[in-house]
């Protein structure tokens, strides 16, 4: 019974986060637009030669998604802080990790949709040739996004409630995400080039291990950072 209650709470939190985001009109559209804008700037920095763009595409895509995503993570706690809703949220019975999982679910959908838009724009802007192994590419996108969302949601629980939140979240997050970025960029690059040397598999294993390790670690640590 208790687990059913927890599932109910997770769903309630995820629904609440997504609905407030959807109705606020400021959230998703601007974050997605920002992602595309950053991508365009990368295009200016790295192009216009088609070959150079194709080489740089994985890096530019993931960095654009990262920079735009950082905004999403702070926002997911913003709504709680604006009207003192976090205090109320902490008053409800039950474990703290349901708050975390609910926000993870909402952020995953948010970041996932944003990634779809950014990747679509990227295919055009960076003249990416879609490889035969595109399902694997989608797998890499999913695994990379999970890594991003897990650590982003966790660190934002702290950064959003401290001074200088705009700088603290990237400062904490970006070094920790180096393995995810390296793995996702390298695997994407390999798959886009036909993966002659079967590199992608190793990177995918690293990504998966990273995701699992940090999902467990952050789940365990969340109650210590949200309550205090």
């Amino acid at each position: 019974m208790a687990f059913r209650d927890d599932v109910r709470r997770i769903r309630a939190i995820a629904w609440k986060d997504l609905t407030t985001e959807r109705r606020s009109k400021a959230g998703f559209n601007s974050v997605a637009a920002l992602g595309v804008t950053i991508l365009v700037l990368f295009g200016f920095a790295l192009g216009p030669d088609a070959q150079a763009l194709r080489e740089a595409a994985p890096g530019a895509l993931w960095l654009s998604a990262l920079f735009a995503g950082v905004l999403a993570f702070n926002r997911s706690y913003q709504v709680e802080l604006e009207s003192g809703a976090l205090d109320q949220l902490l008053q409800y019975p039950g474990s703290r990790w349901v708050i975390y999982v609910g926000k993870l679910a909402a952020n995953s959908i948010f970041v996932g949709l944003m990634l779809v838009i950014v990747v679509t724009a990227g295919i055009a802007l960076f003249q990416i040739r879609i490889p035969a192994a595109w399902p694997s590419l989608i797998g890499v996108l999913v695994l990379g996004a999970v890594g991003l969302v897990v650590l982003g949601t966790f660190y934002a629980a702290m950064a959003s409630r401290s001074r200088a939140r705009e700088v603290l979240l990237p400062l904490l997050l970006f070094p920790m995400l180096v393995p995810v970025l390296l793995a996702a960029m390298s695997a994407s690059k390999a798959l886009l080039n036909g993966d002659m040397m079967h590199e992608a598999g190793a990177w995918v294993k690293l990504l998966t291990a990273y995701d699992v390790i940090f999902l467990i670690a952050t789940l365990l640590a969340f109650e210590y950072v949200i309550e205090v």
Binding site: L182, A217, T218, Y224, V228
Partner: peptide, 25 residues
């Protein structure tokens, strides 16, 4: 104290992973 502890533990966990990923790269 609690926030630093969480960040410190996660950072320490990441040390071997960072090392491995950069070396592979």
């Amino acid at each position: 104290g609690q926030w630093s502890a969480a960040v410190g533990i996660l950072g320490a966990i990441n040390v071997p992973i960072v090392w491995m990923s950069v070396t592979w790269w």
